[in-house]
C-alpha cells in the first residue's frame, strides 16, 4: 500500500515537472519568436552591417548645379565606436549623437562633457575625440537599449533607452513625427525643427548612404551605397540641389544630412526618393 502511494506520488511529480518544462519552453520560445519578429536596427558600418552592401554610384551629364532649398545644423556631432566589445551600435550611437547635440543646453546630459564652442557665426560641435565621457555615455545607452540582448536596438528599446538615459540625467524627452512615406520625409516640418535647433532620427529597414556629391567636368556623380541592414541615423538637415545641362534642369535631388552611426563616425547623406530606401519611422527628438 505504502509502495503504491509512493509510485503514484513520483508519477504525478514527474508528470508535473515534464508539463512545467514543456510549457516554459513553449512560452519561452514563443516570446523569443515575438522579439525577433521586430526589426532590429543593427548596422554599424565597421562590419558593413550585417547586411549586404552594394555600390549604387551613378553619374549624369550636368554642367552646373544650385542649392535651391535646405536647412542644416552647421557642424553636428557624429560619434563612432572603437570599443569592439560593443557591436551593432547604430542605435546607441544615434542616441549619443542626440545627447551630445542637446548637451549644449542640457548640461551634464553627458557628465563632465563640453560638446562644442560658440563662434561668431554660431555654435559648432567638436568632432568625436574618443573621450572617456562619451565612451561611457555610449556604454550606458548600449545597455539601456538592450543592444547586446537583441543584437541591435528595436524601435521600442531605442526610444525607451534614450528616454531612460535623459530621465536619469534629470531631463525629459518629447518626440514628434516627420515621416512622410518609405522614401521621403516631411521636409517642411524638418526645416522648421532644424531652424529651431532640434534634430531628428530615421529608422530604416534598409537605406542608401551617400559619401559624396561631386560636380565637375560636365557630369555630376552621386557616390553612394545601398545597404540592406536595418539602421538608425541622426538627421541634422537636408539639402535640395538642382542640376542643369545647357541651362535646362536635368535632375532635382534631396539629400538628408546624417551623422552615420557607423563605427567610423562618418557624416554623409541619405538620398530621398531612392526606391531602395525604406524608412520605418522619422522622429524629431527634443531633450529639455
Amino acid at each position: 500500500m505504502k509502495n503504491a502511494m509512493l509510485k503514484l506520488f513520483v508519477s504525478i511529480s514527474a508528470f508535473a515537472l515534464c508539463a512545467i518544462t514543456l510549457l516554459s519552453l513553449l512560452f519561452g520560445y514563443r516570446s523569443v519568436l515575438a522579439d525577433t519578429s521586430k526589426t532590429v536596427y543593427r548596422d554599424d558600418g565597421s562590419y558593413r552591417g550585417t547586411g549586404t552592401v552594394t555600390s549604387a554610384t551613378y553619374s549624369f551629364a550636368c554642367d552646373d548645379y544650385k542649392l535651391i532649398d535646405g536647412a542644416e545644423i552647421s557642424s553636428p556631432p557624429s560619434f563612432g565606436n572603437t570599443d569592439h566589445s560593443m557591436k551593432n551600435t547604430c542605435g546607441p550611437l544615434a542616441g549619443l549623437n542626440i545627447s551630445a547635440f542637446y548637451d549644449r543646453w542640457c548640461t551634464e546630459l553627458i557628465p563632465d562633457y563640453t560638446p562644442g564652442v560658440m563662434f561668431p557665426s554660431g555654435y559648432e560641435y567638436y568632432m568625436d575625440k574618443r573621450l572617456t565621457q562619451t565612451k561611457q555615455a555610449l556604454r550606458n545607452l548600449y545597455d539601456l537599449m538592450e543592444t547586446e540582448k537583441y543584437g541591435g536596438a528595436t524601435a521600442e528599446t531605442f526610444k525607451s533607452g534614450l528616454k531612460a538615459y535623459a530621465n536619469n540625467a534629470g531631463y525629459s524627452v518629447s518626440t514628434s513625427s516627420f515621416y512622410s512615406n518609405r522614401v521621403s520625409v516631411n521636409l517642411n516640418k524638418l526645416k522648421t525643427e532644424i531652424n529651431s535647433d532640434k534634430v531628428g532620427v530615421i529608422l530604416c529597414e534598409r537605406f542608401d548612404y551617400v559619401y559624396g556629391i561631386v560636380v565637375g567636368g560636365g557630369s555630376a556623380k552621386i557616390v553612394k551605397e545601398h545597404n540592406d541592414a536595418p539602421h538608425i541615423m541622426m538627421v541634422t538637415g537636408y539639402l535640395t540641389y538642382q542640376f542643369y545641362q545647357n541651362g535646362a534642369t536635368v535632375a532635382t535631388e534631396t539629400f538628408l544630412c546624417v551623422s552615420s552611426g557607423f563605427s567610423s563616425g562618418d557624416m554623409g547623406f541619405v538620398q530621398l526618393n531612392d526606391s531602395f530606401l525604406a524608412i520605418d519611422e522619422a522622429i524629431i527628438y527634443s531633450i529639455y
Binding site: 535646405g70 552647421s74 557642424s75 559624396g212 561631386v214
Partner: peptide, 13 residues
C-alpha cells in the same frame, strides 16, 4: 579639386 556648396559650409575634395 572640386567644391560642393552646402547651406553654410563648403565641402572640398
Amino acid at each position: 579639386y572640386t567644391v560642393l556648396s552646402r547651406m553654410n559650409k563648403n565641402e572640398v575634395y
